[in-house]
Amino acid sequence: MTNEQTEMKERLTEELGELYFAGAEKVFMKAARQPDWKQRLRAWWNQEIEIPLIPVAAVCFLLICALLLTRGEKSPKEQLFVHETRRLIEVGGNTYWIDDYERAVTSIADSR
């Protein structure tokens, strides 16, 4: 125990000397009755839990990264569907998607 501790303890004892516990009867009253569901619920709700910051932050970071990376990317099933419905054709030595080619031909025909 240091001198500082002793001195502070003395000052605190002097300052708080007027405070006396006067709730003994209330404790007996509370002890006589069983806690109701509200008190049980409050006790459960006020339980202290500790959340380890580093692992939780790491998991969140990985989840966000995974979301950002997969966003905009089509699933292999979707990609396969696209390849099945689209076909490449060769016209005049150039290769086009058939739907793009048909759309271009239609727009030229319409403009005439």
Binding site: L12, L16, L19, Y20, F21, G23, A24
Partner: peptide, 8 residues
Amino acid sequence: RYGDNLLR
């Protein structure tokens, strides 16, 4: 015995 100490 301990009430005042705990209250403070």
